[in-house]
Computed example of a mutant assay.
Amino acid sequence: MTGAGRGMGLECARRLVGAVDRLLLVDLDEKTATAAAEDLSTAARTTVVEPYALDVTDRDGLAGLAARARELGTLRAVAHAAGISPTMADWRRILTVDLVGTALLAEALRPLATTGTAMVCFASMAALFGKTEPQPAVEATLADPLDEHFLDRMRAAVGADIEDTGVAYTWAKRGVHRFVQREAVRVGPVGARVCSVSPGIVATPQGRQEAEQHPSMRALVEQSALGREGRPEELAAVVAFLLSDEASFLTGVDVLVDGGVRAGLAGRS
């Protein structure tokens, strides 16, 4: 479980307690990961919870994570919630953490994938907004996020607009959608699955930070079908389902969990 120290990541981790024998709580902040592990361990009867400090863009660190996962046994479930939003960094860092980091994590754990392994990567409903017409140069670049010149290629393909952090975030999350499709084909032959989940506006500290900077988010909530923000545990329930055997025929797809934002906008257009 990455991004496990707070918000949706922590709620996903909470749902996995009892579903797996060993649970690695991966977070950039070691203190946060340790505190989360202590919290979850109090309720864990059959699951051993272990904190693991890691930057998901660190190849060597990811190799260490994969080695630790191998030591613990069969890789059963991976929930990848680690990521940053538009107010948290510049465009290069957003693309690096949200998309390149996703590809690096999958690359590191791919050798451990086996029958029954399931992975869920967090994308965003933002990926479904903005320009929708085909952009071959951008799509070709998104297809290879581990290319050493990926960021420069994105700048060339998108243009100066990519330096807007909101635009960079949108493209990063679209890249997660595309990556999951390709990764599903790579791991499918061994019986493993991978999906993405696209949260809408969820009541988390990170979500509140974005809302403070972007008042338009409140309008989206008001126009949504349910007319409210999501709760972290509601996202966690969807992730838990996607990681479970009950979702054994779901792979290579994105699940939109937005409280009906898109439905609300479509109904008013």
Rank of each mutant, 00 (worst) to 15 (best):
M1T: 13
G3L: 13
G3W: 11
G5T: 15
G5H: 10
R6W: 08
G7D: 15
G9Y: 11
G9Q: 12
E11A: 15
G18I: 12
A19Y: 03
L23H: 10
L24Q: 09
D27P: 10
T32H: 05
E38A: 14
D39N: 04
A43S: 14
A44H: 09
E50R: 14
P51M: 11
P51Y: 09
Y52L: 12
Y52R: 10
D58Y: 11
D58F: 14
R59I: 02
R59C: 01
D60Y: 02
L62Q: 09
A63R: 15
A63K: 13
L65Q: 06
A67E: 15
R70F: 05
G73Q: 09
G73W: 04
L75E: 05
V78Q: 03
H80R: 03
A82V: 09
G83H: 10
I84G: 01
P86V: 07
T87L: 12
R92P: 10
L95W: 09
T96S: 15
T96Y: 01
V97M: 06
D98C: 14
A103I: 01
A103L: 02
L105M: 13
A106K: 00
E107S: 03
A108G: 01
L109S: 00
M119A: 15
M119S: 12
V120K: 03
V120C: 04
V120H: 06
F122W: 02
A123T: 11
M125I: 10
G130F: 03
G130A: 07
K131H: 07
P136W: 06
P136V: 08
P136L: 11
L142W: 10
P145S: 01
E148P: 02
F150V: 01
D152P: 00
R155V: 01
A157L: 09
V158T: 14
E163A: 07
V167T: 15
A168P: 04
A168I: 10
W171C: 08
R174N: 04
G175Q: 10
G175H: 11
F179V: 04
V180W: 07
P189A: 06
P189D: 04
G191V: 06
R193E: 05
S196D: 12
V197I: 15
S198I: 00
I201C: 01
A211Y: 10
M217Y: 10
M217W: 12
R218T: 13
A219P: 00
V221I: 13
E222M: 08
Q223P: 00
S224F: 03
S224Q: 05
A225D: 05
L226P: 09
R228D: 08
R228F: 07
E229G: 00
P232W: 06
E234V: 12
L235N: 01
V238A: 13
V239S: 00
A240W: 09
A240M: 08
L243D: 03
E246W: 07
A247D: 08
S248D: 15
S248V: 02
D254L: 04
V255L: 12
V255Y: 07
L256E: 10
V257S: 13
V257G: 06
D258T: 04
D258H: 05
G260T: 02
G260K: 07
G260N: 11
V261S: 05
A263T: 15
A263Y: 04
L265D: 08
G267H: 02
